[in-house]
């Protein structure tokens, strides 16, 4: 096709997109954001047996400005929701969110006036993780699935195009708060 045919073998060729995706996926910095019992399992993930350092993300940053992954671990009360949103806004782009556990994903068994019925009412969620609480392997599985998503993320014009599509879809979709039945 072009340059790659003239190069001797042994050269690794890739696009900037793939290179950036590869680097981003291997240097995620989670924010310390434990809200309830799921946080205990999140802490367990950094211990020797599970060792999140194998994925290059063992350091949970205390400051959201140094983090690019928010693991919402636990139920979010209505009072905590603005705080959660502020922490998310303070994180620098690009950023991702994992809703860990049933409560963060949908409100779980707490279907009442005090608990936000899923953090996707407040922030955009990339990966939903069921479980009450999910075992450390389940969180690692969610992180690996997120890595896959980050690895295939687009850049530049392609990214702008996808953002436009997502926005159009979000405007057309039913608001989360109006969802009925099992989706609520």
């Amino acid at each position: 096709m072009g340059l790659e045919e003239k190069l001797p073998s042994g050269f690794a060729l890739t696009t900037v997109e793939k290179l950036v995706g590869y680097m981003r996926k291997n240097s995620l910095w989670p924010a310390t954001f434990g809200l309830a019992c799921c946080a205990i399992e999140m802490m367990a993930v950094t211990t020797g047996r599970y060792d999140l350092a194998r994925f290059g993300m063992e350091v949970f940053r205390g400051s959201p400005r140094q983090a690019d992954l928010m693991i919402v671990a636990g139920r979010v009360s209505n009072k905590m929701a603005p705080v959660l949103r502020q922490v998310y806004d303070q994180m620098s782009e690009p950023k991702w969110v994992i809703a860990m556990g049933a409560c963060a994903s949908s409100g779980g068994m707490f279907n009442n006036y005090a608990i936000v019925q899923g953090v996707d009412h407040v922030v955009p969620v990339d990966i939903y993780l069921p479980g009450c609480p999910p075992r450390p392997e389940m969180l690692m599985d969610a992180i690996i699935k997120l890595h896959e998503e980050i690895k295939n993320a687009k850049l530049g014009i392609n990214r702008a195009k996808i953002i436009k599509e997502v926005e159009a879809a979000a405007l057309a979709a039913k608001p989360t708060i109006e969802l009925k039945g099992l989706l609520a």
């Binding site: 949908s106 409100g107 068994m109 939903y128 069921p130």
Partner: peptide, 28 residues
């Protein structure tokens, strides 16, 4: 996303139709 994996449904099932597996990789 709502299920808390308590197993009360398994206890309630009169015909043992519903049981639980050991599969846990469910994130999506």
């Amino acid at each position: 996303l709502r299920c808390i994996f308590c197993g009360l449904c398994i206890e309630a099932c009169p015909t043992r139709a519903l049981t639980m597996t050991n599969e846990y990789e469910l994130a999506d």
